[in-house]
Design a protein around this nucleic acid. Structure first.
Lengths: 337, 337
DNA sequence: TTGTACGCGTTATCAA
DNA sequence: TTGATAACGCGTACAA
């Protein structure tokens, strides 16, 4: 049996209340001698506060739940790290929940977290959604979401990444370098960042008087193989001098394909990734990419959520985060210019 | 205020005990009519069990703590995923704790987890240890460790990966292919897997009558830049036809360096990584590596720990896991053979 | 078939 | 300066 306040109290011939006060530093009105005796017993007996019991009283657990599709996906890994860092900094603990992009798993995890009395939940949505299931779930505690990606009602905090501008500036970077034939290899998703990025791509082109061509946009899976095999099967469109990708892994796949086909990056082909994950920094040349500031986004999600929890204010907040272009070695002026 | 059993009981004009029994499925002795009424109220009121209160009674929380240096390191990412999967499967939740390789952080996290009454802890040790601090910490709940890497007393479960054999077989693979000048670029660590691997390297060479040469062993950091810059600064030893690395990232760095210097992989140089992380599969060619079965190791750590927790048996367990060589495109017969 | 009553470890109020 | 006591929400003998 673990040693409790009661044990300490009995050992020191004081009341539990006294021990409690001392443990919680509310000891202004406790005698020096008593304090010393109790503190000594606590150390000797190895007493440790039972947070469970404490939470029963205080009504908060100082715990949060983090819902993500898959921690192995570098994008989510980075968000998780930022989130955990901030949680730790604020004295909170984080439950890690992978959903494997299954909405059922997501919902059962959220339910479980509520039973566990977490103070709040951070939901990084699965790519697959189900309006009916989501609207039916009643999340009765504060939660934060990334982008407008879920249909859960009454989020407390929403962090939005400006995917439109991110893509716009990525493409603008290529246009400024002189590229005019720019392919876009994107990933499959029903979440709206997909549309936003496509608009960014289109608008940037049009701002430079370059006509948008449907057939310059390819859709495949969000990974190395996806982009690699797409190009292996279809090749680049005639005259293409640059490719923008849905994420760094796809950019990586494009780079592999290029190297294997004797296409020099960036001389013959410029490549841009998205997310600024580790993958954009380990290739040679390193990949120009658009950062979503994943670490910071994770941290902000947690920070704002905690603010909301601790203030108890009943307002919905939205924080917008701009992306940034990170120019590295995979982009340059196109050949012959 | 959240709805409790008491609310349901009052609403249905039954006692709390009745509600409790129904909620927990111990309703053999409850009338059909009562059961229906209560179940209906539960649904209508959106009642959810308070796990905190339940844990106070049952003395278990069905939660575990996972201590790792950094979730962003792919090796730990993979272990974490395996661990969370198994935890979820067994009905447990996982607290994620990054230590950033700081022993003080590790210890404060463990202490916090104990206060939170987790049922057990999985400790993946930081590279930096401190015998004194560790021996002083009294971990009073079951915990599992990976390899013999910590000095905490009385672990319940230890999972050991046979690093010696892993490296032995990796080097043997190269020797079988005909390589005789094999460099080993390793990472810096005081954990004993470092020694084990070095022995594996040495013994494999000696088994084939190839003398071990101190100057064929290089030490740098466990990442792409580490290996890359080592080679940039020192180059390969004269006549080297193959390089074994401390992890996949280093192998990746070697590959980058090779490509930049017109050295063909695997024709001019064979490369072997370690860990079978995603990095060994995204390069071109893909990297031959030695898998530690991280996913399974994470799962086993959790599974065995839970077994221990639920059985209450007071024995220490050690599970040994063999590594496996995964032959991919970065290794082949050396040039001229 | 259902209810009573106590305890889990803590905090907070009020009295002594 | 200290202590008694009532919650917090639930589980479980045991009683009715």
């Amino acid at each position: 049996m673990a040693v409790t306040m009661k044990h300490i109290a009995e050992l020191c011939h004081v009341s539990i209340a006294t021990v409690s006060k001392i443990v919680n530093g509310k000891d202004d009105d406790i005698g020096e001698e008593t304090k010393r005796r109790v503190l000594k017993a606590i150390k000797e007996q190895g007493y440790r506060m039972n947070s469970l019991a404490q939470s029963m009283k205080t009504k908060n657990t100082k715990t949060l739940g983090l819902i993500i599709p898959d921690i192995k996906n570098a994008y989510y890994t980075d968000i998780s790290r930022g989130a955990e860092d901030m949680a730790q900094k604020k004295g909170y603990s984080l439950f890690l929940c992978n959903t494997d992009d299954k909405i059922e798993k997501e919902i059962s995890q959220i339910t479980k977290l509520m039973k566990q009395q977490v103070d709040g939940i951070i939901i990084i949505a699965s790519l697959e959604r189900n309006m009916k299931l989501e609207e039916h779930l009643n999340i009765t505690i504060p939660f934060a979401v990334l982008n407008k990606s879920t249909n859960y009602k009454d989020y407390s905090v929403k962090v939005e990444v400006n995917n439109y501008m991110g893509m716009y500036e990525g493409v603008k970077h290529l246009l400024d370098l002189g590229h005019r034939s720019i392919m876009y290899i994107k990933g499959e998703t029903t979440l709206n960042f997909g549309e936003e990025r496509l608009s960014g791509y289109r608008d940037a082109l049009e701002a430079y008087g370059v006509p948008f061509r449907e057939d310059y946009v390819a859709t495949t899976t969000f990974n190395v193989e996806g982009a690699y095999h797409y190009l292996k099967d279809h090749g680049l469109k005639e005259g293409t001098t640059a490719v923008v990708c849905g994420n760094d892994l796809m950019a990586f796949g494009v780079m592999n394909w290029a190297k294997e086909n004797g296409i020099d990056v960036p001389h013959d082909l410029s490549i841009i990734g998205f997310d600024d994950t580790i993958f954009s920094t380990i290739s040679s040349p390193k990949i120009t990419t658009i950062t979503q500031h994943c670490n910071e986004v994770g941290a902000i999600l947690v920070e704002e959520l905690i603010k909301k929890i601790e203030s108890g204010r009943d307002i919905k907040m939205t924080v917008s985060v701009d992306t940034d272009l990170i120019v590295r070695g995979s982009t340059s002026t196109p050949q012959g210019i």
